[in-house]
Design a protein around this nucleic acid. Structure first.
Length: 112
DNA sequence: CACCTGACCGTGT
DNA sequence: TACACGGCCAGGT
């Protein structure tokens, strides 16, 4: 892949997260070969509004907290979307996080 | 053009 | 156990 498409790599991975599962910014960053770019992954999600096919609600931080909820419309749209997919949320925290966590490296193998 | 900021994370004291 | 710091990408001022 070309070097200018960091965001595209992020979106490519996020699109493959199954409904009912979540992953973290750091896991995505590491998977696409940029282990220190988790922050940039978050910024990519911020820009994901122009990519309707990217399920940004399935990306949370490393401890399962919905840190990006304020970037969705409404106060808890992010939590509602996740719960409608079967992910239980309490106080912006994903319940059974280790169980619903979806690790791209485990499920997809190596990137590209 | 230089500096700042933000949906983060790992490491070091 | 808790806090500070550096690194990462892109866009705004």
């Amino acid at each position: 892949m070309a070097d200018g498409d960091f965001f595209d790599k992020v979106y490519h991975v996020v699109r493959q997260i199954p409904a009912g599962r979540v992953t973290s910014y750091g896991a995505i960053a590491r998977y696409i070969g940029a282990p220190r770019s988790s922050r940039a992954v978050g910024y990519a999600m911020n820009a994901a509004h122009s990519h309707p096919d990217v399920p940004a609600q399935r990306v949370v931080n490393r401890i399962g907290l919905l840190t990006g909820k304020h970037h969705f419309q409404g106060s808890n749209l992010m939590a509602q979307l996740l719960e409608s997919e079967g992910v239980e949320i309490v106080e912006d925290q994903v319940q059974d996080f280790s169980r619903v966590f979806w690790n791209p490296a485990d499920e997809l193998g190596e990137f590209e």
